[in-house]
Amino acid sequence: MSMLWIGVIAASIGAFVQKWIGYQVPPELLERPRIARITTLLPIALLGALVAVQVATSGTAIVLDARLAGLAAAVVLLILRAPFLAVVIGAAAVTALLRAAGIG
């Protein structure tokens, strides 16, 4: 078995263990008020970070391009209470059109 295969299998098993282990924390610990509060605030922070990373970075560089226009379109659609799918497709369409036009 090649080193590459060993790496693929070891990392894949490791990734599963990482997912599994989060569920093994005792419920009593999670029910402490401060911990409960942190775990309920975590999705907000993680989502905020994921939006920023997805829209304005490329590797380890800050890159501002047509994605920003797509995100702006998403904000407008969200304010207009558009359904989820319309928000996602709208953002993709604006970004794709700008790129087709050679902008960003």
């Binding site: 999705p43 907000i44 989502l47 905020g48 994921l50 939006v51 997805q54 829209v55 047509a66 994605r67 226009a69 797509g70 995100l71 379109a73 998403a74 904000v75 969200l78 989820f84 928000v87 996602v88 497709i89 709208g90 953002a91 993709a92 369409a93 604006v94 970004t95 794709a96 059109l97 790129r99 087709a100």
Partner: peptide, 21 residues
């Protein structure tokens, strides 16, 4: 996939999930 704007779609999806909160 960038040509289809899928990278922006992913950002919009995360934002749409964040929005109600």
């Amino acid at each position: 996939p960038g040509a289809w704007g899928l990278d922006a779609a992913a950002a919009a999806a995360f934002l749409a999930l964040l929005w109600p909160r």
